[in-house]
C-alpha cells in the first residue's frame, strides 16, 4: 500500500468536499432555475473522480465524462470558472458555449468532458499517441462509465491502445446503472475489468468508495502506463445518489439500495479514516470542510456576478 502524506490527504479531503458541495449547490441552482441545462450530478462518486486525479503527475492529461464535476475538481479545475460555465457566463471555461457537458481546460491537460457516451476513449488514444510520439512521459487518464464499455469505440480504443502500447489508464466508474439499465442487464459479465483479457492488458476491479484503494491502484496503474508497457483498465464500483439527470424519477431502483450505498459514502469513509488515524483534529477537519464550502459559495457569487457572453461571440471560434 502506498503511503499517504498529510498533504495529499488534506488535498483529497478538501477536494472531495468541494465536489460534494459543488453538486449540492448545482442541484440547488437548478431547482431555482438558474442553471439552464439539465445536469448529471456525481454525488457519491467523489472518490473515483477526485482521488484518481490526485494520483496523476503534473502534465498528465485527462478525458472526462458527462458526469464529470468531481473529476474536473479533482484534476484541478477552478471551481469559479466551472460554476460560471454552468451558468453560461462569459467567464466560464468555455465562455458559456459548452456548459456542464463540455468543461475543458485543454492547455492544462483536461481534454474535455464529453457529451457522447464512449466519445472519450478514442480521443484519449490520440492524446496518448501525442505523448508517446513526443516522448513526454505523460499519461492520459480516461474516465468512462459502465454503459460506455458497450460502445464499439471502447473496444476499438482498447485494441488500438494495446497494440500501440499507448500510455493510457482507462478508469471505468461503474455506478451500476447505464442511465436506468442495471449492469446485470447490459452486460453478461460480472466485472468490466474482465474485458481487458481480450486486449491482453491488465484489468482490475476496485472499490470506488475507498479512497485508499483507488489511490493505490491508480498510482500503480499510471506508473505501469508511464513505463511504456501499454494501457490499463481499472473498474471502480461506485454509486450515484442522484438520478441520471435532473429529470430522472429513479423508478428503476429503491431507497433501500441508495441507503445501503450511503452507508459506504466515500466522504464518510474518508472522515472515519481521518478520525481513526488521528491525522487531523476535529477542528482541522471542520476547517477543511468550511473552506471547501466557502470556496463553492464564492464560486456561485463569482458566476452570478459574471457577465453573460456578448451575443456577437456566437460567431466566434468556429475555426481556429
Amino acid at each position: 500500500m502506498i503511503e499517504l502524506s498529510e498533504e495529499i490527504l488534506l488535498r483529497m479531503y478538501y477536494k472531495m468536499n468541494q465536489a460534494r458541495f459543488f453538486e449540492e449547490k448545482v442541484e440547488d441552482l437548478f431547482e431555482k432555475g438558474l442553471i439552464y441545462e439539465t445536469t448529471y450530478l456525481s454525488k457519491g462518486e467523489e472518490a473515483t473522480g477526485v482521488v484518481s486525479c490526485l494520483a496523476l503527475e503534473k502534465g498528465d492529461l485527462a478525458s472526462l465524462t458527462h458526469r464529470g464535476h468531481s473529476q474536473a475538481i479533482g484534476f484541478g479545475l477552478d471551481v469559479n470558472m466551472m460554476m460560471a460555465e454552468l451558468l453560461g457566463k462569459a467567464t466560464g471555461y468555455c465562455k458559456g458555449k459548452g456548459g456542464s457537458l463540455h468543461i475543458a481546460d485543454v492547455e492544462n491537460g483536461n481534454i474535455g468532458a464529453n457529451g457522447i457516451v464512449g466519445g472519450g476513449f478514442t480521443l484519449s488514444c490520440g492524446a496518448a499517441l501525442t505523448q508517446k510520439y513526443k516522448k513526454t512521459g505523460k499519461v492520459v487518464l480516461c474516465f468512462a462509465g459502465d454503459g460506455a464499455t458497450n460502445e464499439g469505440s471502447f473496444h476499438e480504443a482498447l485494441n488500438l491502445a494495446s497494440v500501440w502500447k499507448l500510455p493510457i489508464v482507462f478508469l471505468i466508474e461503474n455506478n451500476l446503472y447505464g442511465m436506468s439499465m442495471p449492469v446485470s442487464k447490459h452486460m453478461n459479465i460480472e466485472n468490466i475489468s474482465d474485458r481487458s483479457a481480450s486486449y491482453n492488458i491488465p484489468g482490475l476491479t476496485i472499490d470506488g468508495t475507498d479512497f485508499l484503494e483507488i489511490y493505490d491502484v491508480m498510482t500503480k496503474s499510471l506508473r505501469y502506463a508511464r513505463a511504456g508497457r501499454g494501457p490499463v483498465l481499472v473498474e471502480a464500483k461506485t454509486y450515484r445518489y442522484n438520478g441520471h439527470s435532473s429529470s430522472d424519477a429513479q423508478v428503476y431502483r429503491n431507497k433501500e439500495e441508495v441507503q445501503k450505498w450511503q452507508k459506504k459514502d466515500p466522504l464518510l469513509r474518508f472522515v472515519n479514516y481521518l478520525h481513526e488515524n488521528r491525522v487531523f483534529t476535529d477542528k482541522q477537519i471542520q476547517t477543511i470542510e468550511d473552506e471547501a464550502k466557502t470556496s463553492i459559495e464564492h464560486a456561485v457569487e463569482f458566476a452570478m456576478e459574471s457577465p453573460e457572453p456578448e451575443i456577437t461571440t456566437v460567431l466566434e471560434d468556429i475555426y481556429a
Binding site: 485543454v106 466519445g119 480521443l123 485494441n159
Partner: peptide, 28 residues
C-alpha cells in the same frame, strides 16, 4: 513506422485518435 502508422481496421479509432492527437499538439 513512428510517422507512417498502419492501423488496425478501426475507423472509429483512427478518426478519434487523430482528433485527440490534433488537440494535443500533433498534425495527423
Amino acid at each position: 513506422e513512428a510517422r507512417v502508422m498502419d492501423t488496425p481496421i478501426t475507423e472509429a479509432a483512427i478518426v478519434g485518435t487523430a482528433v485527440g492527437a490534433a488537440a494535443t499538439g500533433l498534425r495527423p
